[in-house]
Write a protein that binds this DNA or RNA. Sequence first.
DNA 1: TGTTGATTTATACAGTGTAAATTTATACTG
DNA 2: CAGTATAAATTTACACTGTATAAATCAACA
Lengths: 247, 247
Amino acid sequence: MARPPKERQFANLPELIKDAAWRQITQSGASSLSLRGIARDLGITAPAIYNYFPDRDALVTSLIADAYASFGDCQLAARDAFAGQGKELDRLRATGLAYRRWALDHPHRYLLIFGNPVPGYEPPMEELLPVMMRSLGALVGTIAELHALGRLETGRLPLPLIDTDHRFFSLLENADEGMLAVYAISIAVWCRVHGLVSLEITGQLPLFGEDGAALYRFELDAICRQFIRSPEDDTGVIPRTGTVREP
Amino acid sequence: MARPPKERQFANLPELIKDAAWRQITQSGASSLSLRGIARDLGITAPAIYNYFPDRDALVTSLIADAYASFGDCQLAARDAFAGQGKELDRLRATGLAYRRWALDHPHRYLLIFGNPVPGYEPPMEELLPVMMRSLGALVGTIAELHALGRLETGRLPLPLIDTDHRFFSLLENADEGMLAVYAISIAVWCRVHGLVSLEITGQLPLFGEDGAALYRFELDAICRQFIRSPEDDTGVIPRTGTVREP
DNA sequence: TGTTGATTTATACAGTGTAAATTTATACTG
DNA sequence: CAGTATAAATTTACACTGTATAAATCAACA
């Protein structure tokens, strides 16, 4: 035996590589990420990177995981800023506003995880699923709380197909089989905010300029009006904790 | 003088190049488009392509223009399937349904024009604007018709900032200065359908599987209920979705 | 036949990824 | 404790694919 793997000639080289990768992505976008460029930036040679990431895709996967972690931190922090009963709607709006805020602050991270997939790159779900679940947990958890209070209004919203592969939500906190409405509304909400945010980030949202915030607030209001009942608007559903009732 | 430029050694080579490019894009995605691959496909050499397209971006621009033309054809055809007064809502729904239909039928074309921009590629607006205007004209024109009938319900929808660069809508048919509400609603509608469709196309819409159609129809309904007054309802009150429960 | 457009050949440069050679630091041995 | 074997870390060299340009070649017509 000789030389344990702990001792590296450059300390923290994997982290340095990822830092350089983010710098490069911020400058020129994700799909122009180049291992040789990273190596140049770090003063090493390109093949050295292959000791820590077997190929370019592995590096991308690691960056995606970091982006999800950052996104999840913001989502959970926004939710936890309004703790306590009676603040469920505040939590929902906070996660919604934090979604756009984080996306504007980190557009490349956003596009990396929610943008169009890079052709040729197949994200390894077994690795990314936990951090995806955590990041979406703030929204879904809050919707679930509103559901437990009987304040969800699904209307004609079609429910998810129970028999399909529901990998995305099977690991969510508080997840159980009776929360199809929660999932359905979560998906619908996500679709709406994603449409706005992705267009704004990529500069395809015309006319609103700096005031994309106003349109976004309008859409958050529309979402709340459409899907969330106010607590005093009691239509006969008894708010219950513990037991989940299907509408 | 000798040899007029009409006589090419391969007839229609620009069209053949674009056909091969679409084949390649359909197979492997837009960002892996390779001039050498096209040349291989056509049995010519790569530099020959540079006679017709000065660089890779010029070829991409041409493909984008074709995609907009195809998209516009579908939008206008869908609108014109419900001609005549009194069918404005049918026209709106038809363009909405055609939007998703076309996107599912031509996902790569959709991503090329509405997806995340390819880093390093700057779309030449002076060339693409007319075909963009034409393709969006079906939606905006129909919204404008509903506006002329007094059936638009803007609510708290923020209006576009008039003083910003409104290149996108300045060329639209029936465009005049008084149609800010038309533009605002068109943008809001586009954001919503784009969110759903782009997620569905890229396989990021979980759980709904083949039934993304149901969620899409639900969203079209929500759009119509929120923004369009029915002709006999001249009170300005929109029926709230949250007040009626499903049986 | 000369002119000129169309195409190919040759070349420069950048990128991914692999195999072999090399450096470097540790651990074992005499 | 010195010397050496060893394995990790890194570099060099290479094979391949890509974009793009310049020069050479080919083809058709006046």
